[in-house]
Structure formats: C-alpha cells, structure tokens
Design a binder for these strands. Structure first.
Lengths: 225, 225
DNA sequence: ACAAAAGTGTTAAACCTACACCCATGT
DNA sequence: ACATGGGTGTAGGTTTAACACTTTTGT
C-alpha cells in the first residue's frame, strides 16, 4: 500500500495551522499574537501558526507552533480545530491552506515572548485586536464565534480558570467571552443547577467579602462536539 | 508579492475535498456514495470527493466533485465545510488532507450514476451505511452530527423539500435527521410559531385526508453560522 | 363503512428574566 | 464607619413535553 503513488491531478499545496489562543487577563478576554519577523507582512501582528511537518498530525502541529512561536510551554487546556481557510489568494507566497484552531490557555499564562522567527509575542484584547496579517482578522472573528457557542455547551469556561475559582471569577469569563454583562443571581442559579461545581474552602480576595471557592465536580468531563 | 517563494519548511500535501451529500428518499435520510474504480479501495463505496485543482476554492472544488463523480447537476441547496481530516496515515498514497463538506440536495435528486473514474453511484441509508473506504465512516458520522445541530438553528430542513410541502413532510425530515419520532402537535406549534412558513393551496396525498401546503415565507433566509 | 393520514388544545413542569437588599471582610 | 465586592429569593412570562380525539378524504 505504501508504494501507491499520488495521482497526477493531486494538487500539492502548502499546509499550515493557525492558532487563536485565548486567556483571561485583567478581567478581559485576550488573544495571543506574534509579531512576524519575515516577509510577507514582516512586523505585522498575526496569529501564531506555521507549516505542518511531514508525518505530523494537525493537532500536534498546532501544539508545536504554539510552543515554538511563543514561550507558552504548558499544554493548552483545550485545543480544537474549527475551520479551514483555503481561498486561493489568501497568501501571496502561493497556495497555502490553513487549518485554524481554537486554544484555551490556563490562567496564569502571562509571560509570552517571541520564538522561532518572530519578533515578539503578546496578549491583545480579543474583541478589539490590532490590524492583523493575511486573513487573520477573519480567522479570529470565527474563533470568537466558536468560543461563544462552546460556552453553553461544553464547560469550556472552566478551562480559563485555575482548579479552584470563585463564582464571580467564572462569571467574568462568561461575560468576557459574550462581551456583555450577565445577571449575578441568574448566573449562579444556572451554573449551580448544572451540578458540575462543588464548593471547597474559603478565600479572601484583596478587598470586599471573601468568596466561596469551587472546583469542577469529579467525573464531569466536557461534552462531546 | 507574487514572486515570494514558499519557504523550504512548507510541507506540500495533497489537498482533497470530500462531500457528504444528503437527501430524503422514501421517508429516510440518505447519503450519496460512489463506488471507487481505482486503487486504493477499488470497488469500495466512498463519499464523492477528490483533489482540489490549482487556483480553485474549496467550495468550488466540492461542487465540482459532486457534479463529476455523480450525475447530480443541480446546485446543492446547502453546502458547508465542516471539518478537516488530516491524520498522516489516513490515505495510503501519502499525505492527503481532506476538507469535508456537508451538502443537502434538492428533493427529487434521485437518479445518480457514476462519473469520472467511479463505477457507479447510489443512495444509502445515512444512519446505516455500508462499509466505507478510508476514514469515510468517521467523516459521515461527523456530518450527521453537524446536520443535527443545523436543524434547530438555521432552517436547513426546508432545503430537503420542494418549494411547497406539507407539515407532515417537514416533520419526517426532522425525524429522519434526528433518527427519532417527534410529537405532531408540538412540532406544528413550534414550526408555525417561527413564522417562516406561509400556507398556500391544498393538496391531496394518495391516501388519507389531504394536507395543507406551505412554502417558506418570503424574506426568510437561513441564519448565519 | 372503513382505513388512512391530517389536524387540533390543554395542562404541568421547567426555564428565563428582571429586579434590590443584606453580609463579610479590610482599611 | 465606610467602601468593596459576595451572596441571596421571588414573581411573571415563555418554553417544553406529554397526552387523545375528531376531520377529511379515497376505496
């Protein structure tokens, strides 16, 4: 079987992955961007990404690009392919098809620096990003849409937080992703009714009344897509 | 810009599209399959698909493969990319990445014959398909999942029917996609409450009381994804 | 007249939304 | 004591699910 040849009509294209990686910082939803060091679009900001290696899975490639183009070394809490961008003119270097991925990074993934052939890396407000290279603005917009859908559905909001967290913190994650305020009482009722959260100790924040800490209930895994 | 070269690390892969095309026949949800005429998997059934041409959009490629591998000449009523399959070992001929598409064909698209290098084409029960080539069983399973999600959401069920249709016919589409029975009264209430359907003339079916015909309300376009 | 499929309403439970005040802590 | 943010309940409207009989036609 290994000896079968590709048929002649098989278009060869460059295969890339791009990653829209999100995290919460300062109560805001932020997206991780890198500053390109090479043409085309040198010095422009872009989503981390690059070419898939031979024999490498798409998922692995996305993980690798995240690690090598930024200083992020921990595994993302969530990584999911969400759309493939393949319009013929999208990259001036030729036919390059990019499989876009959505990643959620653990809380505390703050320090990012460039790696590989990037000039730097940084966090930017996900809903108000700077100008982006290629068609990355469209990719980011679609990533945000997918993130919104996943909120209800799976328990993806928890992946933005440490193992233990307070309900107000979780609410801020939801609000940041939806980009609108939510009612505190209704939010609590809904989340606690789902039975995925169990209380633990107590905690004092810097200011105000201390909040109850929760962790995800054992045996609560994210729903299938 | 056109003169920029692909960087050396750009893996070249074969780029393909596969199409899971659905229609209703005999009250059942059916999927369109072709019988392969070439190695690998000669004589096995597979989703229609093939290599993207240079300069061709993914969407166009999916339309073309549908036309040339089967006798389907009308535009699909719906065509949407839903997932990209790129595991290194999925095709014995080498690294081939397939962007999978979901299509809905108009009611009455019955006669299908093979084209191109296929031995034939035919309709099969979508929920109980025959053995399929490559990883096409996984592709089909995911297509069915997406179809289910789109039911609620957009008004995709209407695309399975002719311009005018009865409510029991529409209900059968929903039931076929969900693969479970629905309550007649609740179904009607829900659908009519959406205000997307307007009644027209009357119609007699072969047997039993004739059913009211409906058409989609003017100005009701499918919701965005 | 009978067989076959279309059509029709009500009720209970669950869910969603809006809304305002008291509580526990640090300074 | 006061500023800060955490925590709590209720009522109205909407949505969902379960459920059985009558109507219209063709044979």
């Amino acid at each position: 079987m290994e000896t079968l040849a590709l048929p002649p009509q098989a278009t060869q294209v460059g295969l890339a992955v791009d990653v829209a990686a999100f995290a919460m910082h300062g109560g805001e939803l932020q997206v991780l961007l890198v500053q390109r060091g090479e043409l085309p679009h040198a010095r422009d900001w872009a989503l981390p990404g690059g070419f898939v290696h031979p024999g490498e899975d798409l998922h692995e490639a996305a993980l690798r690009e995240l690690r090598t183009e930024t200083s992020v070394t921990l595994e993302p809490r969530h990584l999911e392919q969400f759309y493939t961008f393949g319009a013929p003119g999208r990259d001036p270097r030729g036919r390059i098809v990019s499989v876009a991925h959505l990643a959620v990074l653990a809380h505390g993934t703050v320090d990012v620096t460039g790696g590989g052939h990037t000039l730097g890396a940084g966090w930017f407000p996900a809903h108000r990003p700077p100008a982006l290279a290629f068609d990355h603005a469209a990719i980011l917009a679609r990533a945000l849409g997918r993130l919104r859908v996943r909120l209800d559905y799976a328990h993806l909001a928890l992946e933005f937080l440490p193992d233990t967290f307070t309900l107000p913190e979780l609410q801020r994650v939801h609000e940041a992703i939806l980009d609108r305020p939510l009612d505190k009482r209704n939010f609590r009722k809904r989340l606690l009714a789902q039975g995925l959260l169990v209380p633990s100790g107590e905690r004092r924040s810097g200011v105000g009344r201390p909040a109850q800490l929760y962790r995800r209930a054992k045996g609560a895994k994210a729903a299938a897509l």
